[in-house]
Design a protein around this nucleic acid. Structure first.
Length: 255
DNA sequence: ATGCCTATGCGACATAGA
């Protein structure tokens, strides 16, 4: 079973790329982030015609997540517990063929310090609390998405350029490390312990051509899923295509 | 030190992204 995560940076602008990628790589489950549209504006018909069921948690203009699946999906929750007034569409959780999967769009947190950074850390803490309850279920679980954190210096092209960025701050890294320590396995790091595994290249300053990337999109596996991990990788070529997202699709193969 | 680039919204620039 192939499970992938893809921050599309606007589903309207990215639909040709998405359909192309679905047709060429045929993932079973896809977690999308930054669809940037309300539920009703998601191009459901086109995606269904490509052979996928669609769950959407949208928002006007910003953020927004979705889960696509070849098999029917049952929505489990569309908000992260712990804040009744949080309006931002950053979380969607579903069951697909016995796999619990979450599409996660963690807040960016820039500029830091400031309220956006505080929101990021608070959101991270809420995710940790909920992730613990998912682990306790002891079922096949995959938390896939844009975590907006570079856990180590190796996950950023330049620490000098990133030093003030929310993605590399000790507080952000601590939150991510605490999440992992619950018992999750970072699929890409499990398959490639050292070196760059970039998933994002900024549109600006020729970042793609210079390979100035960040490793921020990832799939976290519970112990049952980790036991079945066969492969993990970044579909890097899609970042270089016409009108690409600034993120590349990233995925795993579970045996 | 700053902007670089891209997408969206009721738009003719501002905001957000990372």
């Amino acid at each position: 079973m192939r499970i992938a995560t893809y921050n599309v940076n606007g589903i309207a602008a990215r639909l040709p790329r998405l359909l192309e990628w679905l047709g060429e790589t045929k993932p079973d489950i896809v977690c999308l982030q930054e669809i940037k549209c309300v539920d009703g504006a998601f191009p459901r018909d086109m995606v269904e015609a490509a052979g996928y069921h669609v769950l959407v948690r949208g928002q006007k203009g910003f953020h927004g997540v979705a889960i696509l699946s070849r098999a029917p999906a049952t929505e489990v929750r569309r908000t992260l517990p712990g804040d009744d007034v949080d309006e931002q569409a950053r979380y969607l959780e579903a069951d697909v063929e016995g796999v619990r999967v979450a599409s996660i769009y963690l807040p960016n947190g820039n500029p830091q310090p400031g309220p956006k950074f505080e929101y990021k850390l608070a959101w991270f803490a809420r995710l940790r609390a909920h992730a613990l309850t998912l682990l306790e279920r002891d079922r096949l679980t995959v938390l896939a998405g844009d975590y907006n954190v570079c856990p180590t210096d190796e996950d950023a092209f330049s620490m000098r350029e990133m030093v003030d960025n929310a993605l590399v701050q000790p507080q952000s890294r601590r939150e991510y490390r605490q999440l992992l320590m619950q018992g999750w396995t970072d699929a890409l790091r499990a398959r490639q312990p050292t070196g760059h595994i970039y998933t994002f290249w900024d549109y600006q300053a020729g970042a793609w051509d210079r390979d100035h990337g960040l490793s921020i999109d990832r799939l976290l596996l519970d112990p049952l899923a980790a036991d079945r991990l066969r492969a993990a990788g970044v579909d890097k070529a899609y970042r270089g295509r016409e009108r690409a997202s600034d993120h590349a699709p990233t995925g795993i193969d579970l045996g």
